[in-house]
Design a protein around this nucleic acid. Structure first.
Length: 888
RNA sequence: AGGUGCGUAGCUCAGGGGGAGAGCACUUCCUUGACACGGAAGGGGUCAGCGGUUCAAAUCCGCUCGCACCUACCA
């Protein structure tokens, strides 16, 4: 597919789109529900159709793709369901704002026309999101794409609603709810976000009737005094005990207020006396119910003062506060005011201060659903990763409140309840009824409210698979394998999916919940469009390539912590992509004509028959270790560790050492060593590309297709696994000696500022074994250390132009004309010696302790001995070297 | 007010009872036939503080300080 000469560097823009098409044309991502292979299923958390993908989506979806691709390559029958969410309140907000720009209110259009506009918006937004998902290389099953408000999903929603209603788990009633006066809808507790704010505490004087004195109350919302219907004190409060049962007079309006005793009052706060506004405060609401107080609503659903507010009617809440304070102050009822910090509940979507209001709403009785959902996690049937989120989950679930599910919106699933205009009968049913079930009249009106968006999202793991139909998909892919999403929606979504899944499908919706952190800016701030600090992932992708972005997000996805996004990191991993590109390019340029792919079995056979050079065995061993690590860490969702292992192997072992070591071999042009090295190169690169593919799908596919390979696509190639035949501890230790030796020589060159290019002769004082080792690797060592030759000697000569160094192999001298800077070298040696001595003392001290020898494990003692010997040897050599220099 | 988590190199973070790690940044040198999106060699840390357990603590326990987030009806 790629016969063109390979360019000098990787160009993501010229590569990516082609492979998206290629994968989709071949249906690699379409799940087969008849496959005998074990299944692996993830449903994608559906992005809201409010806009486009942000960095948070890019993160969580990248991680999902990594897992799904990895599982697919391991032979699982993988299903990854994509989709989008209608996001009721959020989308309605977006549309309303756009209409407002043209001076239009949705009420000017009417419900039908408004819905039509939103549907048009949905089509566009969905298209954008689907395009972005493809651009990121996410391999999901487009034949199963879903939208929360499409007919299939709506049917599931209605089924769930009706069943819960029939089971008595959904009820309708008049309660105090969080109300957003801008969105003009009820919202759930979770959607009311509490923010600390600096306000004031106002002390108001309420006279007692019959000139019996006064009582001073403290409030942060003076405007609500207009709705006061009582004053409460703690029954045990000596200051006020006598006042209980008396009557106070509400300033400004003159309403009579009973003074009641209620233990919810905190004696220490304010004056210990509190005004009671049952219609506008959750606490007072409860108090109002307990004491059967009148409910006077002074604020309406638009946040304006009602006629009940008397002269203040028609003012906004803020205006009313100002005017009330002014009047109270003028009439001497405002005793004092002081700064006070309080938390104000605001609408999650529009930031308007929430107004607690009493209204008729629908609720889910949640306790019965929560119990099995708690047990599912307690028993380990669902596992959270990272596991500490289980505590968070339990904490919330054990203190859960009923869920207000009705919204006074136009965009969402309409509540399937109908009211008879004749007799008032309400019926809740699966299909739209024509006649009243009681009086038979035909004039039915459907409840105007819609359901909370999360009500439908809660069904996602099974509604997308066809529930309530008993589909094959449901049978094969439920429970889903993993739910991967941001930790911020653990209550909104994860908890509710667990409750619904258990209740309606009879099993957990997924076995594992993986929660990722938030993506933050380089200044550690939350990314948000309103702050204008959001980084558009697609822009970064455009600039640096999808693979670089995906690798960055994956490698930074540590264990549950937030991710601080940095473009520098992306640039760094773009360099990694380029490194991969060039490694393959090097091999391609050195490949003999007609070279073919190498199977694992062939490579294993060569390895176990001892037909490979130690260098080749070494790289296979390192590959093998890496592959084992990657599989292990991905199993634990440790994307950071998996990526680091891959990065380190590819760059610092494969490129830095193996490719360099193979160059002198390849330069021989022909022979058995050349042949096996070519095979090893092809094999190791093939496997490396496979291993990297889940994280960097584009570049790996492109390069794999250029290399000799078998199979249609890397996307469906087998993921490498650790193979015992490749394990080789001897090669590992031998190569590490060679690497140390070469590094030591390079250090001497570098420290003496020798021309890195010039080839110099070297003399080494090595044991017979070590000399043999050096002999075996002569070619590579000469090449890597830029030597003209190596001579093994009994003793090193005393010569100022002989630059000394040492490694595990032995002491050596690099022979140059220039000679060394003896002073500088002595200084370095002293530093070395100091460090070695310190370390040696530590080991010696440890080994001189009888308790250590007695109580520490034998292996630890042994390694301490080895370390002491090693340190002592190095110290001797360094000391000898220093004596020589000082003597000279 | 409760809960959870975190303080490790200049920055971002991993590690988690027995030799302080990575990436980026930094310093010096180098356009050597894959790659300057590169190569080689370096510098840099009382692992927040104090106390305890242990033969051994960055790691376990307690306290203190600092930071972050979540939950909650404090007028």
């Amino acid at each position: 597919m790629n016969s063109n000469p390979i360019p000098k560097s990787y160009d993501s823009r010229a590569t990516e789109e082609r492979w998206v098409h290629f994968w989709e044309e071949h249906d690699f991502f379409v799940a087969d529900n008849r496959s005998p292979a074990p299944s692996f299923c993830i449903v994608m958390p559906p992005p809201n159709i409010t806009g486009s993908l942000h960095m948070g989506h890019a993160l969580t979806t990248t991680l999902q793709d990594v897992v799904v691709r990895w599982k697919r390559m391991h032979g699982f029958n993988t299903l990854w369901v994509p989709g989008t969410d209608h996001a009721g309140i959020a989308t309605q907000n977006v549309i309303e704002r756009r209409l407002a720009e043209q001076g239009i209110h949705r009420k000017d259009l009417g419900r039908e026309k408004f819905e039509q506009i939103v549907w048009e918006w949905k089509e566009k937004a969905e298209k954008t999101i689907h395009h972005q998902i493809r651009k990121m290389g996410f391999g999901c099953d487009w034949t199963r794409v879903a939208f929360t408000m499409e007919p299939r999903m709506s049917r599931a929603v209605r089924e769930v609603f009706v069943r819960l209603y029939e089971e008595g788990l959904i009820y309708r009633g008049e309660y105090m709810v969080n109300w957003c006066p801008r969105c003009t809808t009820a919202i759930s507790d979770l959607e009311a976000q509490h923010e600390p704010e600096q306000g004031r505490l106002y002390y108001l004087r309420y006279p007692l009737r019959d000139f019996a004195g006064e009582i001073v109350v403290a409030t942060t919302r003076p405007e609500t005094m207009l709705g006061d219907t009582a004053v409460a004190v703690h029954p045990d409060d000596d200051r006020y005990r006598d006042l209980v049962g008396k009557t106070a007079i509400l300033p400004l309006l003159g309403r009579e207020l009973p003074v009641i005793g209620d233990s919810f009052v905190q004696k220490e706060f304010g004056t210990g006396a509190v005004k009671i506004t049952p219609a506008h405060d959750p606490n007072d609401y409860q108090a109002g119910l307990r004491h059967k107080l009148p409910f006077v609503q002074v604020i309406d659903e638009l946040g304006m003062m009602t006629p009940q507010a008397g002269p203040y009617a028609g003012l906004s809440r803020a205006q009313a506060r100002e005017k009330v304070l002014e009047d109270l102050s003028r009439q001497g009822f405002l005793v004092r005011q002081e700064p006070h910090s309080l938390s104000v509940a605001r609408c999650q979507r529009c930031s308007t201060a929430v107004e607690p209001l009493v209204s008729t709403q629908w609720f889910v009785k949640i306790a019965a659903l929560a119990e099995p959902a708690i047990q599912a996690v307690e028993s380990g049937r669902i596992r959270f990763v990272p596991s500490n989120y289980e505590k968070v989950y339990f904490e919330w679930m054990r203190n859960i409140h009923d869920w207000c599910i009705s919204r006074q919106l136009w965009w969402g699933h309409r509540i399937p309840a109908w009211y008879c205009r004749q007799c008032g009968q309400m019926q809740v049913c699966r299909t739209d009824p024509a006649l009243c079930s009681r009086c038979g009249a035909g004039q039915l009106q459907q409840d105007p409210d819609v359901l909370d968006t999360w009500f439908s999202s809660a069904l996602w793991p099974f509604s997308t698979l066809g529930w309530p139909e008993p589909t094959r998909d449901l049978e094969v892919f439920y429970p889903n394998s993993v739910m991967m999403t941001g930790f911020d929606i653990i209550f909104f979504w994860v908890a509710r999916m667990i409750m619904m899944g258990l209740h309606f499908v009879g099993d957990v919706p997924f076995r594992t919940v993986f929660l990722n952190g938030l993506v933050r800016t380089e200044q550690k701030q939350k990314m948000s469009k309103s702050k204008g600090n959001a980084v558009d992932p697609l822009e970064i992708v455009e600039q640096y390539g999808t693979d670089a972005v995906r690798f960055t997000l994956s490698v930074m996805a540590g264990s549950g912590t937030d991710i601080v996004f940095s473009t520098d990191r992306v640039i760094g991993y773009r360099a990694f992509a380029n490194k991969i590109w060039n490694a393959v390019r090097f091999v391609l340029l050195n490949l003999p004509a007609g070279a073919s792919a190498v199977e694992s079995e062939e490579m294993e056979a060569l390895a176990s028959k001892g037909l490979l050079t130690v260098v080749n065995r070494w790289v296979l061993h390192r590959l093998n270790v890496t592959v084992g690590e990657v599989n292990e860490t991905l199993e634990k969702f440790r994307f950071d560790e998996a990526c680091n292992a891959l990065y380190h192997f590819f760059w610092h072992e494969l490129c830095d050492w193996y490719l360099e070591l193979s160059k002198p071999v390849l330069n021989q042009r022909s022979g058995a060593d050349v042949e096996q090295t070519v095979k090893t190169l092809i094999y190791v690169l093939d496997m490396s590309l496979r291993a990297l593919h889940p994280v960097m799908p584009f570049i790996t596919e492109d390069l794999w297709q250029r290399l000799p390979h078998r199979g249609v696509s890397l996307a469906v190639a087998r993921y490498p696994v650790a193979r015992p035949a490749f394990h080789n501890a001897d090669a590992e230790s031998e190569l590490s000696r060679i690497i140390d030796f070469v590094t030591a020589i390079r250090t001497v060159r570098s420290e003496n500022n020798l021309d890195p290019g010039r080839r110099l002769p070297l003399e080494v004082m090595a044991s017979q074994d070590d000399a043999g080792c050096v002999e075996r690797y002569l070619g590579p060592i000469l090449a890597l250390a830029r030597l003209s030759g190596i001579r093994t000697v009994e003793a090193l000569q005393e010569d100022r132009t002989h630059l000394r160094g040492f490694s595990g192999i032995g002491q050596f001298a690099l022979i140059s004309e220039e000679g060394s800077d003896a002073g500088a070298e002595a200084e370095r040696l002293r530093k070395d010696i100091a460090r070695l001595q310190q370390e040696l003392e530590r080991q010696a001290k440890k080994l001189s302790s009888p308790e250590f020898l007695q109580k520490a494990p034998a292996a630890v003692v042994e390694s301490a001995r080895e370390r002491r010997a090693d340190l002592a040897g190095k110290l001797d050599k360094a000391a000898a070297e220093l004596r020589r220099l000082d003597g000279a």
